[in-house]
Design a protein around this nucleic acid. Structure first.
Length: 152
DNA sequence: GCCAACGTTGGC
DNA sequence: GCCAACGTTGGC
């Protein structure tokens, strides 16, 4: 399966990911059950992922990465100092998960949300272009992936 | 179990 | 900064 994962570039951008010394980075802070379930039930090591910049000047797809681990508990949920701390989550029964991701490349240019919307009729039922969409992790079909990368 | 209030996301 | 959409919480 292929995926799209959103991040606010002010918090964590594609450039931040590229600069990671280890090459992989835990995608922490996901606090949405649907997104968590995609990571837990859908993601496999090696899956392709679009890196999407949200809540910024030009929201859109800015790069490609790969899933580098299966889902495991997000340590920030137990860290009182983290903004992702969740007092309701217990270590013996973690509520939130994450996966590691690995930088692959920047797209040649930003494939903006505006542009993606113009092609919505070719993308089937793509959550990103649905009204009121707030899903931070979503599956991308092979057809959608090829179409979007064709816009690059 | 309903639903109003509240908080968050994220485009604009 | 505004606000629509929508998920979550909590009173009843």
């Amino acid at each position: 399966m292929n995926w799209l994962m959103k991040s606010e570039p002010d918090a964590f951008s594609i450039d931040d990911l590229k600069a990671c010394a280890k090459g992989t980075e835990p995608w922490d802070g996901i606090r949405n059950y649907q997104a968590r379930n995609f990571m837990r039930d859908g993601m496999e090591v090696g899956d392709r992922v679009f890196f999407y910049h949200s809540n910024c000047k030009v929201p859109g797809i800015v790069g490609i990465m790969k899933v580098a681990s299966t889902a495991y508990p997000d340590p920030t949920q137990f860290d009182k100092k983290s903004k992702y701390y969740d007092p309701a989550s217990k270590p013996e029964e973690p509520r939130w998960l994450l996966v590691d991701v690995k930088y692959v490349r920047h797209t040649k240019r930003v494939i903006s949300l505006t542009e993606i919307k113009e092609h919505a009729e070719h993308l089937g039922n793509f959550p990103l272009v649905r009204k009121g969409n707030r899903l931070s992790i979503m599956p991308v079909t092979d057809e959608q992936w090829d179409y979007l990368i064709g816009l690059e």
